[in-house]
Design a binder for these strands. Structure first.
Length: 264
DNA sequence: AAGGACTGCAACCGCACATTT
DNA sequence: GAAATGTGCGGTTGCAGTCCT
């Protein structure tokens, strides 16, 4: 198999390309640079995982809040596992997909450290491979099998599960957001979410959420230029380091930030 | 050795739901 | 209660690394 997890990180695009992707609103698009990652991590640390639009503005990142959130959730979050899925995880994905269909976020919640995007990607690859194998197999035996094999291609696990999972696998998944789930399921999901948070880093628990601070920012203003991103170590190390989450360690830095922001 | 095909993954998009004003 | 804003989700695309011929 291929091992390109680390090298594949598009955080450092080739020099020429970096500036060219700019959305109509003036927002940057495309791969994130290491500096952007650092900045984002820094501001997420300050403000927590919410108000992404605000965070995007205040940080001075020329990104949409959505983009920031995605980057954080799928790449920078310290709880993420990196690397290939283990066979156990692969089995789990198959199991859970059989049960829940394309409810990736739900599946992801059952697999700590894995993101919906990651699982989705894995499944796509997985089904593509399976589909290919199935086709190859059916082609090989085409001459000997009955006509059922032709309709099988449409009914093969791979194709049905991915393209029509919404109608085959799960009673409620033809409505993407679980409209059919009823409140019990919704509250269950909430409970799951809560569990995830409490068992995980529990960002909110030590969140430096401070509305006064927020209000003190001039909306749309660029981030204070004197906010120095964390040390020169790789972003990932930084994100995983205790210092990022152990807010107490960095009280001085934080106070500096408050001062910059003009907070009382 | 070269170049096309394949693969894996990051990131974007559009939509829907949730929350706030 | 309506409108505005924020957030989350699933689907899709594009790119870069690797494999294969």
């Amino acid at each position: 198999m291929k091992t390109k997890q680390a090298s594949k990180a598009k955080a450092a695009p080739s020099p020429g390309k970096e500036e060219e992707a700019v959305a109509p609103g003036g927002f940057r698009k495309g791969p994130w640079t290491e500096q952007e990652d650092m900045k984002l991590a820094w501001f997420v640390r300050l403000f927590g995982e919410r108000r992404w639009d605000f965070l995007a503005k205040v940080s001075g990142l020329n990104r949409t809040g959505k983009s920031c959130r995605l980057r954080w959730v799928n790449y920078l979050h310290p709880d993420l596992k990196r690397g290939r899925m283990s066979p156990e995880e692969e089995r789990l994905v198959v199991d859970l997909h059989a049960r829940w269909g394309n409810r990736w976020s739900r599946i992801a919640k059952a697999m700590p450290g894995r993101t919906d995007n990651e699982i989705k990607n894995y499944w796509r690859t997985h089904t593509r491979k399976l589909h290919k194998d199935t086709r190859a197999a059916s082609a090989a035996s085409a001459s000997t099998t009955t006509t059922t094999s032709t309709s099988m291609s449409a009914a093969s696990p791979a194709t049905t599960s991915s393209s029509s999972s919404s109608s085959t696998n799960d009673n409620d998944n033809h409505s993407h957001h679980g409209h059919g789930d009823q409140e019990t399921a919704a509250s269950q999901e909430q409970a799951d979410h809560q569990l995830l948070y409490t068992s995980g880093i529990g960002m909110d628990s030590h969140l430096l959420w401070n509305d006064a601070l927020m209000d003190s920012y001039a909306w749309g203003a660029a981030a204070p230029s004197m906010i120095v991103p964390p040390p020169s170590s790789p972003v990932w190390d930084y994100c995983c380091s205790d210092s990022l989450w152990g807010i107490g360690d960095d009280e001085v830095e934080y106070k500096k930030m408050l001062a910059v922001a003009g907070a009382p």
